[in-house]
Design a protein around this nucleic acid. Structure first.
Lengths: 337, 337
DNA sequence: AGTTAGCACTTTCATCTTTAGAGTGCTAAC
DNA sequence: GTTAGCACTCTAAAGATGAAAGTGCTAACT
């Protein structure tokens, strides 16, 4: 593929990303200052189509990029710094807000990413099994409410409350603190399995009624730790792709299925940024969309994965530039602590 | 209004609620076993229209209920037990789940209501200012993380975490516990104002840096305590009213505006169930919708308000029946505790 | 050999026209 | 008071028309 073809392909994609309308040869010449006539461009477009980088919606329509075209764009033509000074400042200001909980950080990053790109974003924290329990603390509220707090090494703090029908003594709380810390500290954050449950039950001399709900709630917390954030689902309604209400509904339904979302975010391979264009998505429901995911981390600490879901004609340059910038800034901020 | 007119009006509304299509005289005769010819029904329909209970979309169309018609239906014709045995069982099973936090109860009620009625539901807890602080507790996690827990008399538990750059001692935690409990226990859950802040700062001998973030976070918690739950926003897309994407977008936007939602839920007057039909809504954005709200409580304890937002042709009978049933069950469950 | 003007050809999209069908309102008869 | 019958109205879907937007190809040009 020669330089002129690349330039034209890039122009077609840039234009189509903006307008969502098939791009004509004359529009390219006018808007992209090409020093050739529309006829020449037409010849090139025909060849690009023959090689599979472009498509047409009907015989006499302008061109739209094919998935192969987008893939070439992402691999070869992408601008890595497609981000304005204003956007940088905005990101900085958002990230500057004092963040106490690791979950809030993910939330802020997700929201900001959605605000700047205008696409729908999803996020998931580090996998529970990969976090280690740093502390587990029991706190008595009043006389019949027990709060359980779990802190992990990646800074996740999760708590839950259990109501009892009878008073809990401070001594009991001490025993619980000692026992659970002895058994769970340093262990991965995963559900309490049967053997462990039996061990704990055997160890504790008093009522099973106190322990049972604790184990139940801890297991619930662990499950919840893999929760997904979703941001800007509405934004997609403004896309011309969703002129058809049918499509819009489908899209919303996909987002609603946590399982699907989880799989997508998890599937990212070794690379920090992964781009799946249309058919490259495993999930049938996403064949008409593109997904970009990135894992963010500080040093070797995994902080989870953020993903963007948008139309295939997504602004890949902007999305990836912004992702990289956010990722960089999170790292800088965190290192300062 | 004579009995036959009532019967016909009821039939028109029931039919329109189901089909969302203008109702014809012949359809009424066929489906509702009226012992009159379509011509007679037509005469009655004409009179009902003249009195303002019915409308037409164009001269030769069938009838649709007017807002006055819906209002009459709600006031006079409603079936108070429009709920099936299956639905009762489903509600019971949902509410049976052990609920430790008052907020979870609101969440469950909201979700269940949305699932059964297929409309969008919103909920808000009791107003923060009307709750009294029962306990405020400081808990040290590790050496540099401080957790603040606030428990109110209506059972709300809110917590937050503050990270410090230096170690916090157990003695400091004790001082904090004593001071804040002495000053705030029994007081309404509201933001810490300037005089109180200054008093606290004067009282504490050590670093302002420790106190400032605590006050900040407590104020954030209080603000958050008035949070809204939203459930089943997607469901509305299935309504034929939303054939136009424009309308659907507007609807989603209304839901997004927390202020509007808050006002609506707050505006409920003394009655436990309030119905606002179309123009009866204060908010311009809701003139095309109907809103039903109900306050739920146990004894004299306010538990907040739940609202349903749907098309004017909402199934008022079902909505109100289900609301009453849920309210009743919550009361029974809670009393048992 | 690469470029381009020119023009026939294709397809869409918006606008009109037509027609069948659903419903009402009214009149006159029961 | 009720109803059969029919003229009349309006909608909604299906075809008809024409302009506009583009392409592809040919033949001429540099």
């Amino acid at each position: 593929m020669d330089e002129r073809k690349k330039k034209i392909l890039q122009a077609v994609i840039d234009e189509y990303v903006n307008t969502a309308e098939p791009v004509s040869s004359s529009a390219l010449v006018e808007k992209y200052h090409l020093d050739y006539s529309s006829a020449t461009v037409r010849n090139e477009l025909a060849e690009l189509e023959k090689s599979g980088y472009l498509d047409k919606t009907h015989t006499s329509s302008g061109r739209i990029p094919s998935e192969k075209g987008y893939r070439f764009y992402v691999d070869e033509l992408i601008k890595e710094d497609d981000i304005s000074l204003e956007e940088m400042k905005y990101i900085q200001s958002k990230l500057d807000a004092k963040v106490n909980e690791i979950e809030d950080l993910a939330k802020i990053a997700t929201t900001t990413l959605s605000e700047i790109t205008h696409y729908t974003t999803v996020a998931i924290g580090p996998k529970p099994e990969r976090q280690l329990i740093e502390e587990i603390k029991f706190v008595l509220l009043g006389t019949r409410m027990l709060m359980v707090v779990i802190v992990t090494d990646s800074g996740l703090v999760k708590e839950t409350i259990i109501k009892y029908d009878e008073d809990i003594t401070q001594t009991q709380v001490e025993t619980l603190n000692n026992l659970f810390n002895a058994k769970l500290k340093g262990k991965p954050l995963s559900k309490i399995d049967k053997p462990m449950e039996e061990y704990i039950l055997a160890e504790i001399t008093y009522s099973v009624d106190v322990i049972k709900p604790i184990i139940e709630q801890i297991n619930r917390i662990v499950e919840e730790a893999g929760t997904i954030y979703l941001e800007g689902a509405n934004k997609s309604f403004d896309l011309p792709e969703f002129k058809s209400l049918e499509l819009a509904k489908n899209f919303v339904n996909v987002l609603d299925e946590k399982e699907v979302m989880l799989d997508i975010l998890d599937s990212g391979v070794a690379k920090d940024i992964n781009v799946y264009i249309g058919d490259e998505n495993d999930k049938e429901e996403l064949k008409d969309f593109s997904v970009v995911t990135f894992k963010h981390s500080v040093g070797d600490k995994d902080l989870g994965t953020i993903g963007i879901i948008g139309p295939k004609r997504m602004n890949y340059s902007k999305v990836i530039s912004v992702m990289k910038y956010i990722s960089k800034k999170i790292n800088e901020n965190k290192k300062g602590e």
